[in-house]
């Protein structure tokens, strides 16, 4: 019973209920200044009002399409770069540590530059999310493709499988689990980067609305937006895990 998935779900649900109850109790007794944490019912009614507005749905639409574009670019460029780098063992030896080192730099430092180049609109957030998401995808693609068991490659050669066939039927499936992990990390980094970028500097989108609510001293509205992001993150995490398990054939 202790190890069953139902038991762990129950414990997780228990934690969530406890946190929400604590929030409710804190609001009830004004334990925390409402500017920092407004009562849960105030946030609820704010959220209720919010989802009835057109600006809410347009902000959601802007943010989702920005994430989709950023992630799409990161996937295409990351996998392509990983593939091209691993075409040569020399290039892998040279570039893998370089890409890895670049990834350790907080790319947020370059957000002002992205805004300078791409403007304050969504394009700068697409570029920022794509640049950040690129790294884990490229690094995992390199790791996966460059560490394919050499016995499989010898077998492919002995079986007469062509160079392209070897990439398609041997290297890609051998590297796939590692690449998939990169795709997953890349997705959440692109998601976080786009929202972060919007919050720091933008004219529209979910992040912008969170920042604006804080500036206008409307904490209930700000928390309502945050609840939306948390809910979206949970749903996306579930969806990504489901897709991943499916692709891993589990």
């Amino acid at each position: 019973m202790k190890d069953s998935p139902a038991a762990s779900r129950l414990i997780q649900l228990g934690f969530l209920t406890a946190a929400l109850t604590a929030w409710y109790v804190a609001g009830r007794f004004s334990a925390i200044p409402p500017l920092f944490l407004p009562p849960i019912d105030a946030v609820w009614s704010s959220l209720n009002g919010l989802i009835r507005t057109e600006e809410f749905w347009s902000a959601i639409g802007v943010t989702l399409s920005t994430i989709a574009k950023a992630y799409g670019i990161a996937v295409v460029l990351g996998v392509l770069a990983g593939y091209l780098v691993t075409r040569s063992r020399f290039l892998t030896a040279v570039l893998e540590p370089v890409i890895s080192a670049l990834f350790s730099i907080p790319i947020t430092l370059f957000l002002p530059l992205f805004i300078l180049v791409f403007g304050i609109g969504t394009a700068s957030k697409v570029a920022y999310g794509a640049a950040y998401g690129f790294f884990p995808i490229a690094l995992n693609t390199i790791a996966g493709l460059s560490r394919v068991d050499r016995r499989y490659l010898a077998a492919a050669r002995a079986l007469g499988i062509s160079a392209f066939g070897t990439v398609r039927h041997v290297m890609w499936p051998a590297a796939f689990p590692v690449i998939l992990t990169g795709l997953r990390i890349g997705f959440f980094i692109a998601f976080a980067s786009v929202l972060g970028g919007e919050t720091i500097s933008s004219v529209e989108g979910v992040g912008r609305n969170i920042a604006l609510s804080a500036e206008l001293l409307e904490p209930a509205r700000m928390y309502a937006w945050i609840v939306v992001v948390v809910a979206a993150a949970l749903v996306l995490n579930g969806a990504v895990s489901a897709i991943e398990n499916r692709m891993r054939g589990e």
Binding site: D149, Y152, A155, A158, L159, G160, G165, H169, P173
Partner: peptide
């Protein structure tokens, strides 16, 4: 060639391991 057992491609079924060789 017949190598040691570890060279059957684990991501393909037994019959796919044959057809991939036939194909090329």
């Amino acid at each position: 060639f017949v190598f040691q057992e570890s060279t059957l491609f684990p991501w393909y079924t037994v019959s796919e391991n044959f057809t991939i060789a036939f194909k090329y």
